Simulated scan of single mutants.
Amino acid sequence: MSDIRLPDYNQALTELTSASLSVTPAELQGLIVGMLSGGISTSNDNWKTILFDYTNDGMGWPMSASTLAETICSFSMRELGGTSMELTMLLPSDDELLNYADAVSEWVNHFISGLGLAGSSLTKLSAETKEALADLEEISKLGIDEEDDFSEQAILLEQVIEHVKVCVLTIHAELAAKPVTPAESKTLH
C-alpha cells in the first residue's frame, strides 16, 4: 500500500493561494469527500472537471494544485474505502480556535456541496442518513461565540468534529459508489 498522506494544511493553503484559487484546504477536502460519499466515479477525471467548474469557473488548475487535489482524493478514497471507520479532516491547527471552527464549518458546507455535485439523489435516504445530513446542515451554521469561555467551546468543538465524522461515514456508507464485483459464474453440472 502506498504511503499517501494528507498534506500539511498551511502548505496546501500556500499552494492554493499561489495558484490564485479561492478555496481553502478544508473546503477542498470537504468537497472531494462529499463527491466521493455521493458516489461520484473516480475511474476517469470527471471528478476533476466538476471540481474545476465549481472552484475555478471551469478553468483547469495549475499542475501543482491539481496534484494536491489528486493527493487529497487518493487519501480520502483509501480512508473511506477501508475498514477502519476513520476520517481525517484537513483542518488548520487548533491553536486559533476561531479559524479552526471556521474551517470545520467550511469543510461541512463543502461536503454538502460535494454531495450535490455528485448528483446524489437525497430523496430516498434511510432515516438514519437523513438525520446525519440534517445534523451536518445544522453544524454548518455553527460558530464560536467570542464572549464565551474558549476552553469550553474548544471541548465542544472537538465533540462536534467527532459527530461530523460519524455523519459523513453514515452518508458515505449509503450513497458512495460500491465496488463492482464480477458476477458469480453459474456453472451447470
Rank of each mutant, 00 (worst) to 15 (best):
Q29L: 01
T129L: 04
A134C: 07
T170D: 00
N10L: 14
A26Q: 00
S121P: 01
L6M: 07
L157D: 05
S37T: 09
H110S: 10
S37F: 04
V168P: 08
Q159D: 12
G39R: 07
M35E: 00
L169S: 03
T187H: 13
A12I: 00
M63G: 06
L21N: 04
F150P: 13
L31H: 08
L21K: 00
V33P: 02
L117I: 05
F150N: 11
G30W: 09
S66E: 15
I32K: 06
L80W: 07
P62T: 09
E162Y: 02
A177K: 15
W61N: 03
P62R: 08
E131C: 00
M77L: 15
A26H: 04
K48M: 09
L90R: 05
E137D: 06
D145C: 05
L133K: 10
R5P: 08
E79L: 02
L36R: 08
A12K: 01
R78P: 00
A177S: 14
E70D: 13
P179R: 06
E86W: 03
T123F: 10
A19T: 01
Q159A: 11
Q153Y: 09
H163A: 09
I72E: 05
N44K: 12
V164F: 09
E138N: 11
A127L: 12
L188V: 14
G114T: 06
I112R: 02
L125K: 06
S64L: 11
E146C: 06
D149H: 11
A103F: 10
S74W: 04
L31E: 04
T123I: 14
S185Q: 15
S22F: 11
P182G: 13
L157P: 00
L97D: 01
G82N: 04
I155T: 14
A173R: 07
G34I: 02
E147H: 13
E106C: 00
G58Q: 03
D149W: 09
L117W: 05
E96N: 12
A183S: 15
S84P: 01
S151H: 13
D135A: 10
L133I: 12
L136M: 00
S140N: 07
M59Q: 15
R78W: 11
E147Y: 12
S66N: 10
D57H: 12
A69H: 09
E152W: 01
D148V: 02
G30V: 04
F75Y: 15
G58C: 01
V164Y: 04
E27I: 07
L136K: 03
H163F: 11
L97K: 02
T129W: 00
H110K: 10
G114D: 05
H189M: 13
W47G: 05
E15M: 15
D3M: 12
L133Q: 08
A101S: 12
F52Q: 13
E184V: 13
S93W: 06
D135N: 14
L68Q: 04
E70M: 02
M1T: 13
S151N: 15
T170S: 06
S43V: 08
Q11L: 14
L136R: 02
S84F: 08
K130I: 03
W107Y: 14
A173M: 06
G30S: 09
E138T: 12
L80K: 06
N99E: 14
S126W: 06
S93A: 11
A103S: 13
V166P: 03
L16A: 00
A118Y: 01
S121C: 04
S20R: 14
G60R: 06
H172S: 07
A173L: 04
I72H: 04
